[in-house]
Design a protein around this nucleic acid. Structure first.
Lengths: 230, 230
DNA sequence: CAGTATCCTATCCGATACTG
DNA sequence: CAGTATCGGATAGGATACTG
């Protein structure tokens, strides 16, 4: 019997059998964050191979955590949605996140920089409410990155839909944010307040947008749980 | 790169890297429940090989979750204690337990019967307060089990220390509880109230003890979170 | 885009025996 | 009792290519 059950009736052990396999909690986190399609899930969990992603989704479906439905809009495509049992995992994910934010070495965390993941996360947490009622375009510039990953555009359209582009969409830019990936990630995680980044973060463009940045640029759910770094 | 990091700065991913390996959460649950010595940990996680247990304890020490100290009482023996970071995992364990209790199939859970684990758990949760001020001995009898696992004695001494024996300690017995392992486990998990077990559970002996059984016989932390079974 | 199929190896882990 | 040493096998999962 290799790799069998823990053989314990304890609910912690039973839950661990289902949840504590590689990638599983990260995938569930991504679903709780709102991704429902295979491609979106891949984007949120890019280092997971498609084979394994497919496998895990099947496992989770068998466990009653995910349901797989044909998409209402597109042919031959499915959507993966959390069942009630899946949604009930939110406290589990939150407990992990809080603990991770509090106790995992900052340095270890900041070894995992990933601009695409970061921008994808930021896109999700933009708060359009404080923005003007017309289209707003914010360009992020990371001069320290390879050319094809340096520029990102966040676009909030008048209907408050948020879009992310890695290629110039051609719109006029309202605000430029120029920084390095490590600084931006640390800000996102709540390790550095935007205002404390000093010369590592430059903001140019519309002064009104710049002034309200902390209002519309949402940070990680777990920001603000831990002592700040210098 | 097989089995490397998730490559994500997300605190959930960082925490998962540390916690979501086989046996780890079950081991931590055992430590939170109070076990500190290698032997006690083995008893609480009996299907884990000593090699792997030793390995995991080292991993957890490296992660700052466990500290290994020479025992104050005994030579050449160590105690494994949770650090503050380790104690902070209690909410994580609780979230797992609550979810497991609510969503894992009862039948799956009850396939993992283990009398030694159950009695060890019960021992931990006996509440001596309502018991008389002299030694109390409760004998559990499981006629459905192999002969050498049928009988267990819980002994609460006048100083309120609780002891568990699998061989007759020779004391007069105050109360006999005769049942089958599945029923007793279901009761422990809160799936059946003691009073509803009917003929599957027989109590003999001191009527006062029998009457107050729900007062002194503690159940699983997670009992009472889920709909009962028939 | 949404997945599947195949292959292959690193690594994890279970079993067992052994030592201070 | 408290751990360590060794070994072999299973398997998970990474890489890559492919299909509707």
């Amino acid at each position: 019997m290799t790799r069998g059950s823990y053989g314990q009736f304890c609910p912690v052990a039973m839950a661990s059998e289902i949840l504590c396999t590689r990638w599983t909690l990260v995938l569930i986190r991504e679903m709780i964050a709102g991704s429902t399609r295979f491609g979106d899930l891949r984007r949120g969990v890019p280092r997971m191979s498609p084979t394994l992603l497919s496998q895990r989704l099947k496992d989770l479906e068998a466990a009653g955590i995910v349901s797989r439905l044909p998409s209402e809009r597109e042919q031959g495509v499915h959507e993966y949605r959390l069942t009630e049992a899946g949604r009930d995992l939110k406290p589990v994910i939150e407990a992990f996140g809080l603990w991770g934010q509090k106790w995992v070495e900052t340095e270890a965390t900041l070894e995992n920089l990933d601009v695409s993941l970061l921008m994808w996360d930021m896109r999700r947490n933009i708060n359009p409410a404080p923005l003007p009622p017309h289209r707003t375009v914010v360009q992020f510039r990371y001069p320290d990155l390879p050319i094809n990953r340096q520029n990102w555009w966040l676009i909030v359209d008048p209907e408050a839909r948020v879009d992310l582009c890695a290629t110039d969409p051609g719109f006029d830019v309202d605000l430029w944010i120029t920084t390095d990936l490590r600084t931006m990630t640390a800000i996102w995680l709540g390790l550095i307040p935007v205002g404390d980044a000093g010369s590592r973060l430059r903001i140019d463009g519309d002064p009104a947008l710049a002034r309200t940045i902390t209002k519309w640029m949402g940070l990680s759910t777990f920001a603000g749980q831990r002592k700040l770094i210098g």
